[in-house]
């Protein structure tokens, strides 16, 4: 465990753990109830401002999924089902129990795949612009056809955020990680596109407090996807964040923190 050296950020660590013969990198920081953040297609290989904010209230763990970031790409990784079973083992290895789970986009889909198998180690669930279910008649954005620039522009509502990110010149390692994330996302989500058609049949098994947070201007998965999740998960709450795209934790961090805190409170023992 090496402490990171940016003094402006909450103290956090970057560690590598072995699960099922696969080394994954985990960012950890903060104190309070345990929280597991499951990243989306873009990965979460470096500490980010929204993690700072989460770490003020929670002891957070942000793993890079197998095939993402600096984690291994195991030969067995073919599907979201593989990833879900991997995480059921990873809960144990990470020492996570009674944990609040937050998943964005692909990570939200992953959270649901884990939860329909078992919520045994989860206290609450927050889905943020989650992939995972089909909504007939509401096309999703096609990240595989968008140019790299459009992939950035289409996930933010605030154009200036997109332009600021595009203006950053990624290091070679960052560019390689982005490509690796893109390839693994394709492997897991190309077809059926970003969904498991069987998942809606089993979402009723999620009987823990659940928050569904959605950007009103999400162009990847329009808010109808959030509404469909809300209709399928008993007792869940749906919050639509105005003037916000696909990444509320980045674009509207306050609303994101409020939503996670609210569901954590509802789930408090």
């Amino acid at each position: 465990m090496a402490p990171a050296n940016n003094p402006a950020m909450v103290e956090h660590t970057r560690e590598t753990i072995q699960v099922d013969g696969c080394a994954i990198e985990v960012l950890r920081g903060g104190s309070g109830p345990g929280l597991l953040f499951l990243h989306g297609a873009g990965g979460a290989s470096d500490w980010a401002p929204y993690m700072d904010r989460l770490a003020e209230r929670f002891e957070i763990a942000v793993p890079s999924h197998p095939g993402f970031g600096r984690s291994d790409t195991p030969g067995w990784l073919d599907s979201m089902s593989d990833l879900a079973y991997f995480y059921l083992d990873a809960f144990e290895a990470l020492g996570l129990d009674g944990v609040h789970v937050v998943g964005n986009s692909l990570g939200g889909w992953l959270a649901c795949e884990i939860a329909v198998r078992s919520t045994g180690r989860m206290r609450s669930l927050t889905l943020v612009g989650a992939a995972g279910i089909p909504v007939d008649g509401v096309p999703m954005g096609d990240i595989f056809l968008w140019s790299p620039e459009d992939r950035v522009r289409n996930v933010y509502h605030d154009r200036s955020l997109a332009e600021a990110r595009l203006a950053r010149n990624p290091s070679e390692e960052e560019a390689d990680i982005a490509l690796k994330n893109y390839f693994t996302t394709s492997r897991l989500a190309w077809s059926p596109r970003f969904c498991n058609p069987d998942l809606p049949k089993w979402l009723h098994r999620i009987r823990i407090p659940t928050m569904i947070l959605w950007g009103a201007e999400d162009r990847v998965f329009p808010p109808a996807y959030g509404e469909a999740y809300a209709a399928s998960i008993p007792g869940s709450h749906l919050r639509i964040v105005p003037e916000c795209g696909h990444l509320p934790h980045q674009e509207k961090t306050e609303a994101f923190i409020d939503a996670v805190a609210a569901i954590a409170e509802e789930a408090a023992p």
Binding site: F144, L179, Y182, S186, W190
Partner: peptide
């Protein structure tokens, strides 16, 4: 056609 049409991720090695 644009590059993304011709070369979807996974079609070739990275």
């Amino acid at each position: 056609s644009p590059a993304e049409y011709k070369l979807p991720p996974g079609y070739s090695s990275m």
